[in-house]
Nucleic acid binder design. Structure first.
Length: 849
RNA sequence: GGGCGCUUAGCUCAGCUGGUUAGAGCACUUCCCUUACAAGGAAGGGGUCGGGGGUUCGAGUCCCUCAGCGCCCACCA
């Protein structure tokens, strides 16, 4: 073996570039697809939203996954670790509209020669959906490059030959194929129903995308005309919906209103006669005990409307304004004329004035703050509108999904509660259609009647071999292009699938379900889905649903849930603007290993404070590792430098004690990693390493230099090499750069393809004894000596005349095994032991010069 | 309203199935240029483990209860 090439002044700076390009050139992380499912560890990597900003939250959670991936690779599993880019959906759409100055019009045909304006223009240029999608793809290529650069810099051990996008052809094929299967199986259906509607984006929104926000509002007490001429007062936060009122409701047992059930009331201002009905959801304590039911003010209105079979009076349009014509049953009136065309807030203000003038407002509005439902990406309160949408049946499947959730291994286990509460609380089927453009189109056309009306019951589906199709441009088999939108012809389904309808298939997309069934069979069901806890109800849930329906299986055996990064104010960093530092800056400042160290010390599922102090500690650890390695490896020039010896060559009790401790560490770290507790593995390894440096290294130094003869030196050097080799491998999943650097000084190949250490390699031949107390006692005496020198304010080199160690016979005997090392390390002239009940170390310093 | 998690040194956090005087890092104080390391090293001060009750020979660790913080869920007129 050639002597190790140890740099004179090792440094961690520049290791990212050096090893990043080496790993790429050597294909260190390349996936070997000839391996079988049992040999493979497959990861359903979260595809980051590329149009979003990079922030430390990304670095945090992806480091966790990478540490596990590296561990599994070293354990001998072939790691399937692809990277996806989520370019599908609203964030990209918004950016493209602004960047190019275009808007999508799905009724336009594809223009292959379209070139976007050099500068964004106003009004924006209308383009077809395929053209719009092309622009989205064009813009996201740069975003994806930015992310890839960050990931490479961070040292993610991804196979960069395996990337996918959620809008790419493979994703489109998988989404459309999956949808067609659901359609055939009767699990997907469309219907006209009240749905949550975002008036800015003008699209339907799913239950999973809801977010409650506290908003200022007010209770308005309003007088309706009762059946016998007396007034009925109700409280409402949405007086502008009076023209949409279809009934008044009270609790069936409410004695105050029992006599009124079955009779009718008159709405104020509009004089519409509405029934007074009873329903148990009406709460007697709330307001006056009577509520007005509108179509639709909130989801309770929908329940009442459905269960009581009430009329429909729609007044809000898709753009969020009061529509032009009054609904059926409401006569045109001056009051209506005042409201029409207004958005909700102005309409509310105006109707309050009108009610005040007419005397139907009782008292003043009483301001309150209340929770209002928003689209999580939206800015205006959601309305509820009736529209035609596509759904996937989930309500009839809750028990089965809960069973899937129980079969999945959650890390940490308590995260399962979020899945269960979500599944248990489902109140609508999964709404997958969106009235947007940059998404996967539904692979559907509809026949048109001779009068030109759309025959929704006559859906035309393509053959799977044609996928992906865009019905706005492609023509169904058996039709010609000129039959589009003509009576007796066909029309394309204009909607696209929601982004979660595609993301729910990431295992299928990454595993190339449609294009490469052989690969898919080797990686699916996958081993792990790493993801954040906030999207359990969306991404995790929907993936389980799709895998259940398509494959009758869980998509993975394990779910590793990561926490958030919190800023010092305990806010989620990614969410509050301006406080997300750029990850590249941090990687520059501290080094990738140091930032990874901080990330990896955040335990699974736990929200973790952003802490640059931890990055400094990580940096110091990396430097320490270099220096300690330098010391250990520079000893190899001394004989005997036999590299392939084993623990049997280690004879000194102190060395054996150290290796015994290391063997326990290996077991503990392995167990922790197998349970996805990377943070524990790191913490234990780090603790051992510092103890190794502070005590063992100091104790063994003189002997390793040959101070006690060649045989004694050989034992020390063998133990040092074994320990270093082991610790480098234990650290490798966390600190890939510095460990690779050191490994390269004396070993061939990458540490990241080296085998994970085994405790048995360190325990030596059967029958060999190792007493951990030897190291413990030696360290205790050395500590006592150091303390005495510090108290005396003298150098650690200062000579010690005499040390008296008191302890029981057994421990003193253990110390005897390392007595020479202790004398050497402490510069002790005379080491005396005395049996005693109370352990103590009494240090007598030599007179100082 | 239901659920989950958290509450340990000034700060960030470990303390796994209950067991010797409660740990680490940062920060702070003091000392030390020692041949792996001064972008270091050594030593030290600092905590009634959120409050209250209980089980136990023994509780930071188990049970009950209360409080605060965070999050998830819920048909919050």
């Amino acid at each position: 073996m050639p002597a190790p090439e140890v740099p004179e002044k090792p440094s961690i700076d520049g290791l990212e570039e050096k090893w990043g390009s080496r790993w790429e050139a050597d294909g260190t992380y390349r996936f070997d697809r000839t391996k079988t499912r049992a040999e493979i560890f497959s990861i359903d990597t979260p595809p980051p939203t590329v149009s979003g900003s990079l922030h430390v939250g990304h670095v945090f959670s992806y480091t966790h996954t990478d540490a596990v991936a590296r561990f599994q690779r070293m354990r001998g599993r072939e790691v399937f670790y692809p990277m996806g880019w989520d370019d599908n959906g609203l964030p990209t759409e918004r950016r493209v509209q602004n960047y190019f100055g275009v808007r999508c019009d799905p009724t336009l045909p594809y223009d292959p020669s379209f070139v976007p304006p050099a500068k964004p223009q106003s009004p924006p240029v209308a383009v077809s959906r395929p053209n719009f999608v092309e622009l989205c793809v064009r813009l996201t290529v740069d975003d994806e490059k930015t992310f890839e650069d960050l990931w490479r810099r961070l040292g993610l051990s991804v196979d960069w030959g395996m990337t996918y996008t959620t809008i790419g052809p493979e994703a489109q094929r998988a989404s459309q194929r999956g949808f067609l299967h659901l359609l055939t199986a009767g699990r997907a259906y469309q219907k006209v129903a009240p749905t949550l509607w975002d008036v800015d984006f003008q699209t339907a929104i799913a239950q999973a995308e809801l977010e409650d926000r506290e908003l200022a509002g007010a209770y308005h007490r309003i007088r309706f005309g009762g059946p016998d001429g007396t007034a009925i007062e109700i409280d409402t936060t949405r007086p502008e919906l009076i023209p949409a009122c279809v009934a008044l409701v009270a609790h069936p047992d409410d004695e105050r209103y029992k006599p009124l059930f079955g009779s009718r009331a008159q709405t104020p201002l509009f004089g519409v006669s509405v029934p007074i009905v009873a329903h148990p959801l009406a709460e007697p304590e709330k307001g006056t005990g009577v509520a007005m039911i509108c179509t639709f003010g909130d989801v309770t209105d929908v329940t009442w409307w459905r269960e009581l079979q009430l009329e429909t009076r729609t007044i809000v349009g898709r753009d969020g304004r009061i529509q032009a014509d009054p609904p059926e049953g409401v006569e045109p009136s001056p009051a209506w004329a005042e409201l029409t065309g207004k958005k909700m807030e102005p309409a509310r203000g105006r109707i309050v004035e009108l009610l005040r003038e007419s005397g139907d407002l009782v008292g003043d509005p009483r301001p309150i703050t209340h929770a209002v439902k928003f689209f999580e990406k939206g800015n205006k309160p959601l309305e509820i509108l009736s529209s035609r949408q596509w759904f996937i049946h989930t309500l009839d499947n809750q028990e089965r999904l809960l069973e899937r959730g129980r079969a999945l291994h959650w890390h940490p286990p308590y995260m399962r509660a979020r899945f269960e509460s979500w599944v248990s609380g489902l109140n609508t089927d999964w709404l997958i259609s969106r009235q947007r453009f940059f998404g996967v189109p539904f692979p559907l056309w509809y026949g048109l009647s001779d009068d030109g009306s759309i025959r929704y019951d006559a859906a035309i589906v393509p053959d799977e071999s044609r996928l992906p199709v865009d019905p706005s441009t492609d023509v169904p088999d058996g039709y010609s292009p000129d039959q589009r939108d003509q009576p007796g012809g066909f029309t394309g389904e204009p909607d696209v699938m929601d982004t979660w309808a595609t993301s729910s298939l990431t295992p299928q997309i990454a595993g190339r379900w449609t294009d490469d069934p052989d690969l898919f069979a080797r990686v699916f069901p996958m081993d792990v889905r790493p993801q954040a806890h906030e999207i359990i109800r969306t991404w995790l849930f929907s993936t389980v649903v799709r895998s259940d329906l398509e494959h009758d299986a869980l998509p993975w055996t394990d779910a590793a849930i990561s926490g958030w990064v919190l800023d010092p104010d305990r806010k989620k960093m990614a969410k509050s603007k301006g406080n997300a530092l750029t990850p590249i800056g941090l990687l520059d400042q501290y080094g990738s290993d140091a930032v990874r160290y901080w990330a990896a010390s955040g335990r699974p599922g736990v929200d973790t404070a952003f802490d640059e102090g931890q990055m400094k500690v990580g940096r110091r650890l990396a430097i320490k590792l270099l220096n300690a390695s330098k010391f250990v490896l520079s000893r190899l020039e001394l004989p005997p430098a036999e590299p392939d010896g084993d623990a049997g060559d280690v004879t000194a009790p102190l060395d054996r004690a150290m290796l015994a401790g290391l063997a326990s560490l290996v077991d503990e770290a392995t167990t922790a990693f197998e349970g996805y507790d990377y943070a524990r593995a790191l913490e234990r390894t780090e603790t051992f390493f510092w103890g190794f440096c502070d005590d063992y290294l100091e104790l063994v130094k003189g002997r390793a230099y040959g101070g006690q003869g060649e045989a004694a030196a050989a034992s020390a050097n063998r133990a040092l090499m074994l320990a270093l080799s082991t610790m480098l491998r234990l650290f490798a999943p966390f600190l890939p750069f510095v460990t690779e650097e050191v490994w390269s000084w004396w070993k061939d190949g990458s540490v990241h393809r080296a085998t994970w250490p085994l405790a048995v390699e360190l325990r030596g031949p059967a029958g060999a004894t190792a007493d951990p107390v030897v190291l413990e006692m030696a360290a205790a005496v050395l500590g006592g000596v150091r303390k005495a020198k510090t108290v005396a304010q003298v150098s650690m080199r200062a000579e010690v005349a005499r040390v008296v160690v008191s302890d029981n016979a057994e421990r003193l005997a253990a110390l005897a095994g390392a007595a020479d090392d202790v004398r050497d390390a402490g510069r002790i002239a005379e080491l005396v032991t005395e049996e005693a009940d109370q352990p103590s170390v009494i240090v007598g310093l030599a007179p100082q010069a």
